[in-house]
Computed example of a mutant assay.
Amino acid sequence: MVLLSKITEDAIVENLRKRYMDDYIFTYIGPVLISVNPFKQMAYFTDREVELYQGAAQYENPPHIYALADNMYRNMVIDGENQCVIISGESGAGKTVGAKFIMSYISKVSGGGPKVQQVKDIILKSNPLLEAFGNAKTVRNNNSSRFVCTALRGMEAAWG
């Protein structure tokens, strides 16, 4: 996106449209990741992608939510920094699904052990509880989530 000759709203939208038509649903604008909901199942979230993005530099591979998740995970574990991801978009944009992919990625790369597994289970099972407190019916979505972030703070204790 930063390589566009003109940075206008029309140019950005056109670039996103072209990428979307070619099944590139992720795009970077500097450190920000834009994700466009493909409204279909795609092979972007397999074990192959986990291996590709685990430990890689953010711009080493094509834009992906796993690159963002890996960077966040490494900052949390290696540097001991608390992490937060802001996921924004309109109803039906895929915010909840994106949050689930981030949690799933961290769960896959975080290793094992009973204490780590317990924290992973709690995080992955937290979604229905959060939905019970925060969903609403909107014009576009009968089950619209009103949360987009799950705290990962408790996980750092499990990794020591």
Rank of each mutant, 00 (worst) to 15 (best):
C84K: 15
S35F: 15
V77N: 00
V119K: 12
E9W: 07
M72I: 07
I86W: 09
D47I: 13
M155R: 05
S91M: 13
Y105A: 04
I102V: 14
G89L: 01
A151N: 14
Y53T: 08
I29S: 09
M42W: 02
D23K: 13
Y73K: 04
K125Q: 13
G98F: 09
F45D: 04
N142V: 05
Y53S: 03
I78Q: 05
I102A: 00
G55P: 09
I123S: 01
N75A: 05
L68W: 04
R153E: 04
G160Y: 14
A11R: 09
W159Q: 08
V85R: 03
D23I: 03
A151W: 10
K137Q: 15
E60H: 15
A56Y: 11
Q58Y: 12
M155P: 00
L68V: 14
N15F: 08
M72W: 02
Y28T: 03
G80M: 06
Y20H: 04
R140C: 08
N142F: 06
R153P: 00
G154Q: 10
G30S: 14
I123Y: 02
N75G: 02
L3V: 07
K95R: 11
G92S: 14
T27A: 06
V50I: 15
Y73C: 01
L16V: 01
M155G: 00
I7M: 13
N143I: 05
V85W: 03
P63H: 07
S126W: 03
E60S: 14
M155L: 15
I25V: 15
A11E: 13
E131Y: 07
M72L: 09
A158T: 10
S144T: 07
A157H: 02
N15S: 02
A69P: 03
N141M: 06
F26Y: 15
K95L: 05
R74K: 15
I25N: 02
I86L: 12
A157P: 01
M155N: 01
L130Y: 11
S88P: 02
D22F: 10
T138D: 10
M76K: 09
K40W: 11
I12Q: 01
F133C: 02
V139Q: 11
W159V: 10
V36G: 00
G113I: 06
E14N: 12
S145M: 05
P62C: 09
D121G: 15
M42T: 14
I7V: 08
G30K: 13
R17K: 09
T96E: 01
V2Y: 07
N37R: 14
Q41S: 12
N75W: 02
M1K: 05
L152K: 06
M155C: 02
N141L: 03
Y20K: 01
W159H: 13
Q118H: 12
G94S: 10
R146I: 01
P38R: 11
I12T: 02
I122P: 00
A67W: 03
E90V: 12
E51R: 15
